[in-house]
Amino acid sequence: MSVNLSGYYKLVSQVNMDAYLKALDINIALRKIVCLLSPDKEIIQNGDQMTIRTLTTFRNYVMEFRLGTEFREDLGAIDGRTCMTTVNWEGDKLVCVQKGEKANRGWKHWLEGETLHLEMTVEDVFCKQVFKKTK
């Protein structure tokens, strides 16, 4: 592991969020709300233990995990599902694989300077968010 993602980040752009949420079977009303939100991300990295907080005015989501250890993730706040999740480093990218009802579900985080990138996938649909480090 050569990258430390720790920091607080503010959303600067996102692409294809509505299609991503639709692929997760999120109803249109909730999709509209989510697409209007500007989430902040807080990442705390302490060795192989990590916490990723996604913070919005509508709903917050906290993900705590140990790298390389599969765990049962409750995504009830997002789409009402649970899945088996594993997060590992692949080079300089933090890669999450979520096994459950939906195929090819997961995400990747990586840094380019002070810019945090997040690419989320489900089935054959992707969404990308870009965040700027503020602290």
Results as ranks from 00 to 15, higher is better:
residue 3 V to L: 09
residue 3 V to A: 05
residue 3 V to K: 05
residue 3 V to R: 02
residue 4 N to Q: 07
residue 5 L to K: 11
residue 6 S to T: 15
residue 7 G to P: 07
residue 8 Y to S: 14
residue 9 Y to R: 04
residue 9 Y to H: 11
residue 12 V to Y: 05
residue 13 S to C: 13
residue 13 S to A: 15
residue 13 S to P: 13
residue 13 S to H: 13
residue 14 Q to E: 12
residue 15 V to C: 09
residue 16 N to E: 05
residue 16 N to G: 06
residue 17 M to A: 07
residue 18 D to V: 07
residue 19 A to G: 12
residue 20 Y to T: 04
residue 21 L to W: 07
residue 21 L to I: 10
residue 22 K to E: 13
residue 22 K to T: 12
residue 22 K to V: 05
residue 23 A to T: 04
residue 24 L to S: 01
residue 25 D to T: 11
residue 27 N to H: 11
residue 30 L to K: 15
residue 30 L to A: 14
residue 31 R to Q: 09
residue 31 R to L: 04
residue 32 K to L: 09
residue 37 L to G: 13
residue 39 P to Q: 02
residue 39 P to L: 02
residue 42 E to C: 07
residue 42 E to N: 07
residue 44 I to P: 00
residue 44 I to S: 11
residue 45 Q to G: 05
residue 45 Q to T: 09
residue 46 N to H: 13
residue 47 G to T: 07
residue 48 D to G: 02
residue 49 Q to R: 12
residue 49 Q to D: 13
residue 50 M to W: 05
residue 50 M to T: 00
residue 50 M to G: 01
residue 51 T to C: 10
residue 53 R to K: 15
residue 53 R to M: 08
residue 58 F to C: 10
residue 58 F to S: 09
residue 58 F to A: 14
residue 61 Y to G: 01
residue 61 Y to T: 13
residue 62 V to G: 02
residue 67 L to H: 01
residue 69 T to H: 10
residue 69 T to A: 12
residue 70 E to N: 04
residue 71 F to G: 01
residue 72 R to C: 09
residue 73 E to P: 11
residue 74 D to W: 05
residue 75 L to I: 00
residue 76 G to Y: 03
residue 77 A to F: 01
residue 78 I to V: 15
residue 78 I to M: 14
residue 78 I to Q: 05
residue 78 I to C: 02
residue 83 C to A: 11
residue 87 V to P: 03
residue 89 W to F: 11
residue 91 G to C: 10
residue 91 G to H: 10
residue 92 D to A: 12
residue 92 D to K: 12
residue 93 K to F: 02
residue 94 L to Q: 04
residue 95 V to R: 04
residue 95 V to G: 03
residue 99 K to R: 15
residue 102 K to N: 10
residue 103 A to G: 03
residue 103 A to F: 00
residue 106 G to A: 04
residue 106 G to P: 03
residue 109 H to C: 07
residue 110 W to Y: 15
residue 110 W to P: 05
residue 111 L to F: 06
residue 111 L to P: 00
residue 114 E to R: 05
residue 116 L to E: 02
residue 116 L to A: 01
residue 117 H to S: 07
residue 118 L to I: 06
residue 118 L to E: 06
residue 119 E to C: 12
residue 120 M to V: 01
residue 123 E to G: 00
residue 126 F to N: 12
residue 126 F to W: 06
residue 128 K to S: 12
residue 128 K to M: 11
residue 130 V to Q: 10
